[in-house]
């Protein structure tokens, strides 16, 4: 953005190796869930990860990582993110930390949201990070345009698009692909979330939101398909309680699916830098 003097700005993203956007045209498909689980998976692969939550009107990340009550502190380099673990391998920044009550509504129009995002991208003191995951709200509007514009000079690695299998969601994600192409963001791939639910009583699998939509979309639009994540009530429950699902349920098929997706992202992003 030409209006500001870029050289004077603190370069807090300078120590971040890879920047990945998590996007979806549709709401409630699991962007935040995928963001947090990917972060934990990357953690367990020995990477230091940051999560930036730019969903200003509905931040979910603090709740999911059980850091809702934490506050952000200021230091001379900027805002110190909240760490979700003892070892400080998972840093988090969200507007949720700046609200005085958890039920406060952020009733803001575009320009105010843009200013906040700009600040998030320049003023958070991440230190050294292997991966920064940016969790976006649904749509193709202010938050997305601002994030992409402000990230330009850091050359983000690309975007992970999350969808659910049903046609209504896939239609919106297709618009998101158009957004990425128009703004020159590489698409790392499509993740299909909530595909299939295994009944815990009889182990019959029901496709609550039909099946295969994500894979079809990836084929049609010629983008990589990263995999599908089945619905698992244990995962939803872990997110409600802010528990580390990736550690607690080692045998879960959902966990394996997330690990597989993390692997693919690791190879894709390393390719680019080798």
């Amino acid at each position: 953005m030409s209006r500001m003097d870029d050289t004077e700005e603190s370069d807090n993203l300078g120590g971040v190796k890879h920047v990945i956007l998590i996007l979806s045209g549709k709401g409630g498909v699991g962007k935040s869930t995928v963001t947090t689980q990917l972060a934990l998976a990357l953690n367990s692969a020995g990477k230091k990860v940051g999560i930036l939550d730019v969903d200003l009107c509905g931040p979910s990340i603090p709740k999911m990582l059980n850091v809702e009550s934490k506050d952000v502190h200021q230091c001379s380099q900027g805002w110190v993110p909240v760490y979700a673990d003892q070892a400080q391998q998972l840093a988090v920044m969200s507007i949720g930390f700046l609200l005085s009550s958890r039920d406060d509504a952020v009733v803001w129009r575009g320009p105010k949201k843009n200013a906040m995002i700009k600040q998030f991208l320049s003023d958070v003191y991440w230190q050294e990070l292997d991966y920064l995951l940016i969790d976006n709200p649904p749509g193709t509007s202010d938050e997305h345009i601002s994030t992409v514009e402000n990230l330009k000079k850091y050359k983000p690695d690309g975007a992970v698009l999350v969808t659910t299998p049903q046609a209504v969601a896939v239609a919106d994600v297709r618009r998101e692909i158009t957004f990425c192409r128009k703004t020159g963001i590489r698409i790392l791939g499509v993740v299909e979330n909530m595909s299939g639910f295994v009944c815990p009583h009889c182990t019959a699998c029901s496709n609550l939101f039909s099946k295969g939509g994500g894979e079809q979309l990836a084929q049609q639009c010629n983008v990589p398909y990263l995999g599908s994540i089945p619905l698992d009530p244990q995962l939803t429950k872990s997110l409600e309680e802010g528990e580390n699902f990736m550690n607690s349920f080692q045998t879960s098929g959902t966990r394996q699916a997330v690990m597989g997706i993390a692997e693919m992202i690791l190879t894709q992003t390393n390719d680019k830098h080798s």
Binding site: F197, C199, C202, S206, L231, P233, K237
Partner: peptide, 18 residues
């Protein structure tokens, strides 16, 4: 709540923990 079409038992997919 979701009633499994196979065994008719209800599961909470999105559990109302609060």
């Amino acid at each position: 709540g979701f009633v499994c079409p196979n065994c008719k038992i209800e599961s909470q997919i999105f559990p109302p923990t609060t």
